[in-house]
Design a protein around this nucleic acid. Structure first.
Length: 843
RNA sequence: GGGCGCGUAGCUCAGUGGGAGAGCGCUCGCUUCACACGCGAGAGGUCGCUGGUUCGAAACCAGCCGCGCCCACCA
């Protein structure tokens, strides 16, 4: 009996035991100097400021299963882990956690400590203090993630971690930006930009989402023309009316002017094909800016700007009749009306102007309530505005066909996810805005010269030198200047913005792979083999990574993109069965065990949303326990073990070889769910039928050579199955492996058909043998079950009727069948069909 | 409005041209010497609807219905 074999095998504590052991032994360490083929994974860096949830367990397990399979196949697996800690989510979390807010105008306070409890009124802190707090909190968050991943059994090399705010990531981000700038793939422009009024930053098209919100349609008279709008507060920002050129109702008005209500501004009436005759009254007011259509009209018709919304979302003060663009036929009246709007938020101003318009008789009907889709920043709480500001862009519009071609070079898992990518690329309508007016992010490595009036010349940015990266232009000085010239006429100013978090995470292959830091490594791992990620961020992370690799390397970033589904909350569907939504991933792993949680995850097929199902985890737990017990049975007998020679044993190994072939093929196709299913299917058959059939023979009472064959086959089958299970259930596989084998199962080779039936003398045991034996055994069990007898009840006589061929096969395994069924006398009768008559001793 | 996916047993889902399946749940039975976190047996379905292709359709095609996701210029 193997020395490590426990009397009572248990799953308790195996996660801690083996994750420590794997770390100590460097089981998953990546060897950059390897001779082996490298399999590289562009691991998703989780947003550490977000909460840990079961979705993480789900999708990261999928990747790990693939990594483990590849490692066992003999490939050197490059499996790093990053932490996405920069950006808005962290800022927001830090604000709430410590009760602070960033005020870049404040000086650095070296000894600042946040109060133990966050105060109601947020404490303003300097940008540097704020960034320090961000760094402090993300370190804690990263530890929470790492301990979850270790507990879950992710086989990442924990020596290869990075953070998106770290120096390497900043350097890569700035290098890539300068690369793009040099080739005119990035540019800055002052233009109308989608803007979140709470975060006070520009946002990108990829971060928008439509939300249907209640609003109202207002009918407003412009002279004798009636328009419909949901944003009457923008009447003071109106610059034109537009209708479709073919619209009979307005045809004779094109080229004329009307006067805006309340404000008395003369605006032109234009024709535009974008106008839709069936919407509202068919004629729309164009404001700077109410929505993206306004921007299009503004561009197309070369209209002036009459901006009233401030970056904080409130209406700014305007001096009517004095300020250029705000000429009025009655400045005093305009001012009086506008003064009731100034300083208000859009929604408040809307109510106010509604009254004003009504009082002025310009509202022709009561506002009609409507539900309409409005654009929001995906993390925001209020509708986006469009604010004119200077932003950095990466050119995407000119390269859409190239991106789609890259998409076609890649293998998508599942295949239909490519359609989402192409769909997104086809729908792009602006270049990628990468600048954010925020604090905790990678700065742009540029400064601007200031002219004699102290105005920045954005057309001549001063670029940081590569050797100095990463730089922070707000605290470092550009070449040829000194700090005293900062902000002075004739001096310089640093670019105040930071990059959007996707501008950094889109470089995850470059950051993890050591681009320009360790080029020999990068050459070996890039393009990467696998990008695993969730399908909801195809438009952001996947797309932007394709953009960057295309521009930087003229290459796809990876060969395979595997899209995992989401975890659906079962309580969403069955509202009555609310069990309390307090499932934490760590709690899950503690309750069911990591292998059990992984079992549930692996059953979620690629791309398919999967319901959270603790029942599946119980099943996984049961499977892991069964593996322990079956292994104990196989290893628990100190009998002779020899080469499998008996037909039943050989046939079993041949069947297992078929399973090995199939499971290997499935893993190669990234179909981990079916791979596990097939493995499991064989395993249960093995336990229920084969183990029962050889139980008697293996003890060697009748025939030592037959016993040796059984024991040999049992051990080979067990070893093979442990390897097949190892990717999905790494803990229990390793536990059993350790009872009798040296080293780690995760570094043992992947099984092959040749391991099982390599020698030619093993041919000639047909698969049908197993079926006959199992069929007869099943009939005997059925008879006992029907007679409500124990399975050990003795069968005095069993008569098997079957075809000659099947009876011949049965003859080869008859001893085993008789043993397993406790049959005293077995009779075989040739005939049509299959039937077994069973007689018991006392019946 | 466009794109994609899904609709099979009470539940979660597999099954892509020829016997309608698995697990869980349910019922009945069994203290079998690896395992009661177990073992054995059983009940349970007009495979969303309609039409077509075919000797034959859960599967292929068309249309429809329902659910979900992604996208779209929000007057």
């Amino acid at each position: 009996m193997p020395r490590g074999l426990p009397d009572k095998p248990s799953l308790d504590g195996i996660e801690a035991r083996w994750s420590e052991r794997w770390e100590a032994d460097g089981t998953y360490r990546f060897d950059p100097n390897t001779e082996r083929t490298i399999y590289s994974i562009d691991t998703p860096p989780p947003t550490v400021s977000g909460s840990l949830h079961v979705g993480h367990v789900f999708s990261y397990t999928h990747t790990d299963v693939i990594a483990r399979f590849r490692r066992m196949r003999g490939e050197e697996v490059f499996y790093p882990m990053g932490w996405d800690d920069n950006g808005l989510p962290t800022e927001r979390r830090v604000q709430n956690y410590y009760g602070v807010r960033c005020d870049p105008s404040l000086p650095y306070d070296e000894g600042f400590e946040p109060p133990p409890e966050p105060p109601k009124q947020a404490i303003p802190v300097s940008r540097r203090n704020f960034v320090e707090l961000c760094l402090r909190l993300t370190v804690e968050d990263e530890q929470a993630f790492e301990s979850l991943w270790r507990r879950l059994g992710l086989s990442v090399d924990w020596g290869m971690t990075y953070t998106t705010i770290g120096a390497e990531a900043q350097r890569a981000s700035q290098r890539a930006f300068l690369h793009h700038l040099e080739r005119d793939l990035a540019y800055s422009v002052e233009a109308p930009t989608l803007w979140d009024v709470d975060y006070r930053t520009a946002v990108a098209q990829a971060e928008l989402e439509d939300r249907v919100v209640p609003g109202a349609a207002y009918r407003v008279m412009f002279g004798d023309l009636e328009i419909e709008t949901t944003r009457p507060e923008l009447v003071p920002a109106c610059v034109a009316l537009v209708a479709h050129p073919d619209d009979e109702r307005y045809r004779d008005r094109f080229g004329t002017e009307v006067v805006t209500p309340l404000f008395g501004v003369r605006v032109p009436v234009h024709a535009s094909r974008l106008a839709q005759p069936d919407k509202g009254t068919g004629i729309a007011m164009v404001c700077t800016f109410g929505d993206v259509t306004d921007v299009e009209w503004w561009r197309e018709l070369k209209l002036p700007i009459r901006a009233v919304i401030r970056p904080d979302g409130r209406l700014r003060p305007v001096a009517w009749g004095e300020e250029p663009g705000f000429e009025s036929e009655d400045p005093a009246a305009a001012q009086a009306a506008y003064d009731r709007l100034a300083g208000k938020r859009a929604t408040q101003a809307r109510d106010e102007i509604s009254q004003l318009l009504a009082e002025a008789g310009a509202l022709t009907a009561d506002p009609k309530p409507v539900e309409h889709p409005v654009k929001f920043y995906e993390r925001g709480e209020r509708p986006l505005e469009i604010i004119t500001s200077r932003q950095w862009f990466v050119r995407t519009m000119d390269h859409r066909e190239e991106f789609k071609a890259r998409g076609r070079e890649m293998h998508w898992i599942p295949e239909y996810m490519r359609a989402r990518f192409e769909n997104w690329v086809d729908g792009l309508n602006t270049d990628w805005c990468i600048s954010r007016q925020r604090f905790f992010g990678v700065p742009f490595p540029v400064w601007y010269p200031l002219d004699a009036d102290g105005v920045a010349d954005h057309s001549r940015p001063i670029l940081a030198e590569d050797g100095n990266l990463p730089v922070d232009p707000s605290s470092e000085v550009p070449p040829g200047y000194d700090e005293a010239q900062r902000g002075r006429p004739g001096g310089f100013a640093g670019d105040p913005d930071v990059m959007d978090t996707w501008a950094t995470s889109s470089l995850s292959p470059q950051i993890a792979g050591g681009w320009r830091e360790d080029d020999p490594l990068f050459e070996r791992v890039f393009p990467m083999d696998l990008r695993p990620q969730a399908h909801d961020i195809i438009r952001t992370w996947l797309f932007s990574t394709v953009v960057r690799s295309h521009f930087l390397h003229d290459s796809v970033p990876w060969k395979n993109a595997a899209l995992s589904g989401w975890v659906l909350d079962p309580d969403r569907k069955k509202m009555s069965k609310s069990k309390g939504n307090v499932v934490t991933p760590m709690g899950l792993l503690e309750q069911f065990g990591s292998d059990a949680a992984r079992y549930w995850a692996v059953n979620g097929r690629p791309g398919v949303d999967t319901a959270f199902d603790d029942n599946q985890m119980k099943v996984g737990r049961r499977l892991a326990t069964k593996i322990l017990n079956a292994s104990r049975f196989v290893l628990g007998h100190e009998g002779p073990a020899g080469p499998p020679t008996r037909p039943l044993d050989v046939a079993m190994l041949r069947r297992l070889a078929g399973t090995v072939d199939e499971v290997t093929r499935l893993f190669e196709a990234y179909d981990y769910a079916r791979a596990l299913e097939r493995t499991e299917e064989f395993f249960w058959w093995f336990c229920d039928n084969y183990l029962e059939l050889v139980k008697g023979r293996r003890y060697g009472e009748r025939d030592p050579e037959a016993a040796a064959s059984a024991n040999g086959a049992l051990q080979i089958a067990l070893e093979t199955q442990l390897r097949l299970f190892a990717p999905a259930l790494p803990f229990v596989a390793e536990e059993v492996w350790s009872w009798w084998r040296d080293g780690s199962v995760h570094r043992a080779g992947w099984p092959t058909r040749e391991d099982l039936v390599g020698s030619p003398e093993l041919d000639g045991a047909p698969d049908g043998l197993l079926d006959v034996a199992a069929d007869v055994l099943a009939e005997i069990r059925k008879a006992k079950s029907t007679a409500q007898l124990p399975m050990r009840a003795e069968v005095s006589r069993a008569v098997v009727r079957d075809s000659d061929e099947r009876l011949g096969l049965l003859g080869e395994v008859q001893d085993d069948v008789v043993d397993a069924g406790c049959v005293a006398e077995l009779e075989k009768v040739a005939g049509d069909g299959f039937a077994v008559e069973v007689e018991f001793a006392d019946s």
